[in-house]
Design a binder for these strands. Structure first.
Length: 225
DNA sequence: AAGGGAGTCAACCGCGTTGTA
DNA sequence: CTACAACGCGGTTGACTCCCT
Protein backbone atom coordinates (compact mmCIF):
# COMPACT_ATOMS: atom_id res chain seq x y z
CA UNK A 1 0.00 0.00 0.00
CA UNK A 2 1.50 3.29 -0.96
CA UNK A 3 1.12 6.52 0.94
CA UNK A 4 0.48 9.88 -0.58
CA UNK A 5 4.12 10.41 -1.27
CA UNK A 6 4.84 6.96 -2.53
CA UNK A 7 5.95 5.62 0.84
CA UNK A 8 4.03 2.94 2.65
CA UNK A 9 1.91 2.64 5.71
CA UNK A 10 2.52 0.33 8.63
CA UNK A 11 0.24 -2.64 9.18
CA UNK A 12 -1.49 -0.49 11.78
CA UNK A 13 -2.28 2.12 9.20
CA UNK A 14 0.31 4.58 10.42
CA UNK A 15 2.20 6.75 8.00
CA UNK A 16 5.84 6.07 7.18
CA UNK A 17 8.44 7.97 5.24
CA UNK A 18 9.34 11.63 4.96
CA UNK A 19 7.54 14.12 7.14
CA UNK A 20 5.40 16.82 5.60
CA UNK A 21 5.48 20.46 6.67
CA UNK A 22 2.03 20.03 8.17
CA UNK A 23 3.13 17.08 10.27
CA UNK A 24 6.12 19.02 11.48
CA UNK A 25 3.91 21.92 12.41
CA UNK A 26 1.56 19.70 14.38
CA UNK A 27 4.39 18.00 16.19
CA UNK A 28 6.14 21.26 16.93
CA UNK A 29 2.96 22.81 18.24
CA UNK A 30 2.14 19.90 20.46
CA UNK A 31 5.58 19.47 21.96
CA UNK A 32 6.04 23.15 22.61
CA UNK A 33 2.75 23.17 24.46
CA UNK A 34 3.03 19.90 26.36
CA UNK A 35 6.72 19.16 26.40
CA UNK A 36 8.68 16.09 25.36
CA UNK A 37 7.87 12.55 26.37
CA UNK A 38 4.81 10.33 26.08
CA UNK A 39 5.47 10.03 22.41
CA UNK A 40 2.71 7.60 21.66
CA UNK A 41 0.35 10.08 23.25
CA UNK A 42 1.87 12.88 21.22
CA UNK A 43 1.22 10.91 18.07
CA UNK A 44 -2.44 10.46 18.93
CA UNK A 45 -3.19 13.77 20.61
CA UNK A 46 -1.47 15.92 18.04
CA UNK A 47 -3.47 14.34 15.28
CA UNK A 48 -0.45 12.72 13.74
CA UNK A 49 -0.97 9.41 12.03
CA UNK A 50 2.53 8.35 13.05
CA UNK A 51 4.08 5.98 15.53
CA UNK A 52 5.34 7.49 18.76
CA UNK A 53 8.74 6.29 17.80
CA UNK A 54 8.64 8.18 14.56
CA UNK A 55 7.49 11.34 16.34
CA UNK A 56 10.30 11.14 18.84
CA UNK A 57 12.88 10.60 16.15
CA UNK A 58 11.61 13.49 14.09
CA UNK A 59 11.64 15.78 17.08
CA UNK A 60 15.04 14.76 18.38
CA UNK A 61 16.78 14.79 15.02
CA UNK A 62 15.10 17.64 13.26
CA UNK A 63 12.61 19.82 15.07
CA UNK A 64 14.13 20.23 18.51
CA UNK A 65 15.14 23.83 19.15
CA UNK A 66 18.85 24.52 19.23
CA UNK A 67 19.87 21.91 16.69
CA UNK A 68 22.79 22.93 14.56
CA UNK A 69 22.52 22.39 10.85
CA UNK A 70 25.28 22.04 8.37
CA UNK A 71 28.73 20.56 8.45
CA UNK A 72 30.47 19.62 11.63
CA UNK A 73 33.25 22.00 12.54
CA UNK A 74 36.82 20.70 12.78
CA UNK A 75 36.57 21.04 16.55
CA UNK A 76 33.42 18.97 16.63
CA UNK A 77 35.03 16.38 14.40
CA UNK A 78 37.98 16.17 16.73
CA UNK A 79 35.74 15.73 19.70
CA UNK A 80 33.80 12.98 17.97
CA UNK A 81 36.97 11.15 17.04
CA UNK A 82 38.30 11.48 20.54
CA UNK A 83 35.15 10.38 22.28
CA UNK A 84 34.64 7.51 19.91
CA UNK A 85 38.07 6.26 20.77
CA UNK A 86 37.02 6.37 24.41
CA UNK A 87 33.52 5.04 24.24
CA UNK A 88 33.10 3.31 20.92
CA UNK A 89 29.72 3.50 19.22
CA UNK A 90 28.00 5.27 22.07
CA UNK A 91 26.52 7.85 19.76
CA UNK A 92 24.04 9.25 22.21
CA UNK A 93 26.75 9.78 24.81
CA UNK A 94 28.95 11.47 22.27
CA UNK A 95 26.05 13.60 21.10
CA UNK A 96 25.49 14.86 24.62
CA UNK A 97 28.94 16.38 24.52
CA UNK A 98 28.17 18.26 21.33
CA UNK A 99 25.37 20.73 21.91
CA UNK A 100 23.08 20.99 18.93
CA UNK A 101 24.26 17.77 17.32
CA UNK A 102 22.27 14.55 17.26
CA UNK A 103 23.39 10.98 17.68
CA UNK A 104 22.08 10.24 14.21
CA UNK A 105 24.16 13.02 12.74
CA UNK A 106 27.27 11.88 14.52
CA UNK A 107 26.66 8.29 13.57
CA UNK A 108 26.27 9.26 9.94
CA UNK A 109 29.40 11.34 10.09
CA UNK A 110 31.39 8.49 11.53
CA UNK A 111 30.14 5.95 9.06
CA UNK A 112 30.83 8.31 6.23
CA UNK A 113 34.35 9.21 7.23
CA UNK A 114 35.78 6.27 9.10
CA UNK A 115 34.00 3.12 8.19
CA UNK A 116 34.60 1.03 5.11
CA UNK A 117 31.77 1.63 2.73
CA UNK A 118 29.94 -1.49 1.78
CA UNK A 119 29.90 -2.65 -1.81
CA UNK A 120 27.46 -0.57 -3.71
CA UNK A 121 24.01 -1.95 -3.06
CA UNK A 122 22.30 1.01 -4.60
CA UNK A 123 21.12 1.79 -8.04
CA UNK A 124 19.11 -1.35 -8.22
CA UNK A 125 16.47 -0.09 -10.57
CA UNK A 126 14.34 1.28 -7.78
CA UNK A 127 11.52 3.54 -8.88
CA UNK A 128 12.08 7.18 -8.05
CA UNK A 129 8.48 8.29 -8.01
CA UNK A 130 8.56 10.42 -4.90
CA UNK A 131 12.02 11.76 -5.45
CA UNK A 132 11.22 15.21 -6.74
CA UNK A 133 8.44 15.92 -4.31
CA UNK A 134 10.56 14.85 -1.44
CA UNK A 135 13.44 16.98 -2.64
CA UNK A 136 11.26 20.04 -3.07
CA UNK A 137 9.80 19.58 0.36
CA UNK A 138 13.20 19.25 1.93
CA UNK A 139 14.44 22.42 0.32
CA UNK A 140 11.34 24.28 1.39
CA UNK A 141 11.74 23.08 4.93
CA UNK A 142 15.39 23.89 5.06
CA UNK A 143 14.66 27.41 3.94
CA UNK A 144 12.05 27.85 6.63
CA UNK A 145 14.20 26.40 9.30
CA UNK A 146 17.23 28.30 8.21
CA UNK A 147 15.48 31.52 9.12
CA UNK A 148 14.59 30.20 12.53
CA UNK A 149 17.97 28.67 13.05
CA UNK A 150 19.83 31.84 12.27
CA UNK A 151 18.02 33.56 15.06
CA UNK A 152 18.91 30.81 17.48
CA UNK A 153 22.36 30.24 16.09
CA UNK A 154 24.07 32.95 18.05
CA UNK A 155 22.72 31.71 21.30
CA UNK A 156 23.73 28.13 20.55
CA UNK A 157 27.16 29.11 19.34
CA UNK A 158 27.87 30.81 22.60
CA UNK A 159 27.11 27.60 24.41
CA UNK A 160 29.15 25.49 22.02
CA UNK A 161 32.09 27.83 22.09
CA UNK A 162 32.27 27.85 25.82
CA UNK A 163 32.04 24.07 25.86
CA UNK A 164 34.81 23.68 23.31
CA UNK A 165 37.18 26.31 24.54
CA UNK A 166 37.49 24.68 27.88
CA UNK A 167 38.26 21.12 26.90
CA UNK A 168 39.71 20.42 30.27
CA UNK A 169 36.54 21.35 32.03
CA UNK A 170 34.47 19.36 29.58
CA UNK A 171 36.63 16.29 29.97
CA UNK A 172 36.53 16.48 33.71
CA UNK A 173 32.80 16.75 33.56
CA UNK A 174 32.61 13.68 31.37
CA UNK A 175 34.85 11.68 33.61
CA UNK A 176 33.04 12.67 36.75
CA UNK A 177 29.73 11.88 35.17
CA UNK A 178 30.69 8.42 34.07
CA UNK A 179 33.46 7.03 36.17
CA UNK A 180 31.17 6.02 38.96
CA UNK A 181 29.20 3.79 36.72
CA UNK A 182 31.27 0.88 35.50
CA UNK A 183 29.24 0.46 32.36
CA UNK A 184 29.56 4.08 31.44
CA UNK A 185 33.28 4.26 31.93
CA UNK A 186 35.28 4.99 28.85
CA UNK A 187 37.06 1.91 27.59
CA UNK A 188 40.45 3.38 28.39
CA UNK A 189 39.53 3.33 32.06
CA UNK A 190 38.23 -0.16 32.11
CA UNK A 191 40.37 -2.97 33.39
CA UNK A 192 41.23 -4.45 30.06
CA UNK A 193 41.88 -1.15 28.38
CA UNK A 194 45.44 -2.02 27.50
CA UNK A 195 44.13 -4.39 24.90
CA UNK A 196 42.22 -1.69 23.15
CA UNK A 197 43.87 0.63 20.71
CA UNK A 198 42.49 3.34 18.47
CA UNK A 199 43.01 1.07 15.51
CA UNK A 200 40.47 -1.26 17.02
CA UNK A 201 37.90 1.37 16.35
CA UNK A 202 39.26 2.96 13.25
CA UNK A 203 39.91 0.68 10.35
CA UNK A 204 41.23 2.81 7.59
CA UNK A 205 42.66 5.92 9.13
CA UNK A 206 46.35 6.29 9.63
CA UNK A 207 47.03 6.44 13.30
CA UNK A 208 49.26 9.48 12.99
CA UNK A 209 46.59 11.44 11.24
CA UNK A 210 44.09 10.15 13.73
CA UNK A 211 45.95 11.31 16.79
CA UNK A 212 47.04 14.50 15.10
CA UNK A 213 43.53 15.86 15.04
CA UNK A 214 42.67 15.10 18.59
CA UNK A 215 42.46 17.19 21.66
CA UNK A 216 45.69 17.80 23.36
CA UNK A 217 45.30 15.27 26.09
CA UNK A 218 48.18 16.82 27.98
CA UNK A 219 45.82 19.59 28.74
CA UNK A 220 43.37 17.24 30.30
CA UNK A 221 43.82 16.61 33.93
CA UNK A 222 42.54 13.24 34.99
CA UNK A 223 42.83 12.45 38.60
CA UNK A 224 42.21 8.75 38.53
CA UNK A 225 45.66 7.30 37.84
C1' DA B 1 24.26 16.22 -22.05
C1' DA B 2 23.58 11.86 -20.01
C1' DG B 3 24.58 8.14 -17.06
C1' DG B 4 26.73 5.99 -13.23
C1' DG B 5 29.19 5.79 -8.83
C1' DA B 6 30.20 7.67 -4.36
C1' DG B 7 28.92 10.47 -0.53
C1' DT B 8 25.47 12.13 2.54
C1' DC B 9 21.39 12.31 5.26
C1' DA B 10 16.66 11.21 6.93
C1' DA B 11 14.02 7.65 8.53
C1' DC B 12 12.93 2.88 9.82
C1' DC B 13 13.80 -1.48 12.37
C1' DG B 14 15.05 -4.47 16.07
C1' DC B 15 16.24 -5.01 20.57
C1' DG B 16 17.47 -3.90 25.27
C1' DT B 17 16.11 -1.10 29.22
C1' DT B 18 13.01 1.17 32.20
C1' DG B 19 8.64 2.34 34.17
C1' DT B 20 4.09 1.08 35.60
C1' DA B 21 -0.14 -1.42 36.49
C1' DC C 1 6.74 -10.78 40.85
C1' DT C 2 5.13 -10.55 36.22
C1' DA C 3 3.54 -8.66 32.03
C1' DC C 4 3.19 -5.08 29.11
C1' DA C 5 3.97 -0.58 27.18
C1' DA C 6 6.95 3.17 26.31
C1' DC C 7 11.33 4.81 25.55
C1' DG C 8 16.04 5.09 23.85
C1' DC C 9 19.84 3.46 21.27
C1' DG C 10 22.60 1.47 17.60
C1' DG C 11 22.41 -0.56 13.14
C1' DT C 12 20.61 -0.49 8.59
C1' DT C 13 18.22 1.05 4.57
C1' DG C 14 16.51 4.04 0.97
C1' DA C 15 16.71 8.20 -1.55
C1' DC C 16 18.87 12.60 -3.03
C1' DT C 17 22.99 15.33 -4.54
C1' DC C 18 27.31 15.91 -6.41
C1' DC C 19 30.91 14.84 -9.30
C1' DC C 20 33.31 12.38 -12.70
C1' DT C 21 33.58 10.08 -17.14
Amino acid sequence: MAGVDGWGMTDKGLRKGPWTAEEDRLLNEYVSMHGEGRWSCVAKCAGLNRSGKSCRLRWVNYLKPGLKKGQLTPQEQSIITELHSLWGNKWSMIARCLPGRTDNEIKNYWRTHFKITKPNRRRQDKPRTSALRRQQFRRQQQQQQQDQQEAKQKQVEETVTSAQVDNKQAMELLMCTNLEDEQCRPVMFQDDHENIRPSDFIDDVEEGAYWGGLWNMDDVHIDHA
